[in-house]
Computed example of a mutant assay.
Amino acid sequence: MAGADPVIGMVAGEPSGDLLAAPVIAALHARAPGLRVAGVGGPRMLAQGFDAWYPMQKLAVNGYADVLRHLPELLGIRADLRRRWLAEPPAAFVGVDAPDFNFTLEHALRAAGIPTVHFIGPSLWAWRGERIHRIREAVSHMLVVFPFEAKIYQDAGVPVTYIGHPLAGVIPREPDRAAARRRLGIDSSQRVLALMPGSRAGEIAHLAPRFLEAGRLLQRRDPGLQLWAPMAGAERQRQFEACAARLGGMAGLHVVAGGSQDVLAACDAVLVASGTATLEAALFKRPMVISYVLPRLSYWIMRRKAYLPWVGLPNVLCREFVVPELLQDAATPQALADAAWQALTDERRNRELVLRFTALHDELVRDTPALASNAILEVAGHGG
């Protein structure tokens, strides 16, 4: 590879992957200005010069039932990516999360001699730990974002680097609520609940009606309560607004495309779907109620495979229920409203959460883009 800038293949299948990958692409370009990164990605990656062959929305499916409905298209996309990269091999391939899609692709590429990096280790500590054997065959180097994960891969003989969590490096240790409220035009005296029902169509379909009904119940307790819902793009915004319209509309509801970090900085508490957004809320030091609802078959399968009592990342990382989780049938509008009201009003508990989440933030801060880009270029034979 001497004298030539590498081409890096990359696949990110959902908005959280787009958020994680964008600063790494920027760091890759800083190290290798002639670099080209191509594959599947989202708008933040495109803003860093990424060449998207497919939009990431094609891969953003939710649960086993949703995957089955979209399986022919997903298999077709993966086959096309494999064909293109086997015909013109990149210096390395980077799979960003999306393990069920990426591990099969990584296995085929590595078998053909293409080095593979997986960015964000899958939750082997939570469920499906047997995947470590498949990972050992598919992945040349694993990048993990939580400190306890490194030993799992070291013990299995998989080269690994702990890179910290990218969000910890970009979210302020002490978020400025007043400044965020000024940017959004929110009065300092208003109580604000953020509604974050997920980034996928299936998540919105299952959670948005429950979150909105919970918001309506909460506004009976506090008629001035403001509800802010940052959506992952215009399509999800339209879907959420259509759901609100079917429920008859609501006063004090603000639905925006993007802007999740301003909303998290400005709000008093969050109703949030399990996923990366829960960690984002924790890094903003906000009390939250975590929820998730899947098609019944998908939930039954995942529940049988689970190892831990927690699903939300703040609880997993703190090793206890520091914030409530209301899953599946427990996620009724009334239960969500009751838990969210406590999150909005329990000042003593919220002060304790700020201390816990600040300690968590400090543990996760590293120069993630630099560590990740260094590891990727080393695997690609472009280090030094």
Rank of each mutant, 00 (worst) to 15 (best):
W85P: 11
W85S: 07
L86F: 13
A87Y: 02
P89R: 07
P89V: 12
P89C: 14
P89L: 12
P90L: 02
P90T: 07
A91M: 14
A91R: 08
A92V: 00
F93P: 00
F93K: 05
F93L: 05
V94K: 00
D97M: 15
D97A: 12
D97T: 15
A98N: 14
A98W: 13
A98E: 10
A98I: 13
D100V: 12
F101W: 07
F101E: 11
F101D: 09
F103E: 01
F103I: 15
T104D: 14
L105H: 04
L105S: 03
L105P: 06
L105W: 07
E106I: 03
E106T: 03
E106W: 05
H107Y: 15
H107E: 15
A108M: 14
A108Y: 05
A108V: 13
L109R: 02
R110C: 11
A111Q: 15
A111L: 13
A111S: 14
A111D: 15
A111T: 14
A111M: 13
A112I: 12
A112T: 07
A112S: 13
A112L: 11
A112H: 10
G113D: 11
I114F: 05
P115M: 01
V117F: 06
F119V: 12
F119I: 10
F119H: 03
I120L: 12
I120R: 10
I120D: 11
G121F: 01
G121C: 07
P122Q: 00
P122E: 04
P122G: 03
S123H: 00
S123N: 05
S123D: 00
L124I: 10
L124A: 06
W125P: 06
A126T: 11
W127L: 15
W127M: 15
W127A: 15
R128I: 09
R128M: 04
G129V: 13
E130Q: 03
E130N: 06
E130D: 03
E130Y: 05
R131Q: 13
R131G: 05
I132G: 02
I132T: 10
H133G: 12
H133V: 15
R134P: 06
R134L: 04
I135P: 01
R136D: 06
R136G: 11
E137A: 04
A138I: 04
S140M: 05
S140I: 02
H141M: 11
H141W: 13
H141T: 12
M142C: 11
M142A: 09
M142H: 04
M142I: 10
L143P: 08
L143H: 04
L143E: 08
L143S: 02
L143D: 07
L143Y: 04
L143V: 06
V144G: 08
V144Y: 08
V144E: 03
F146A: 01
F146K: 09
P147F: 00
P147Q: 01
F148N: 00
F148T: 00
E149P: 09
A150M: 05
A150W: 03
A150K: 12
K151F: 03
K151T: 10
I152M: 09
I152N: 05
I152K: 00
Y153N: 07
Y153K: 07
Q154S: 09
Q154N: 08
Q154G: 09
Q154W: 04
Q154V: 08
Q154H: 11
A156F: 07
A156Y: 08
G157S: 08
G157L: 06
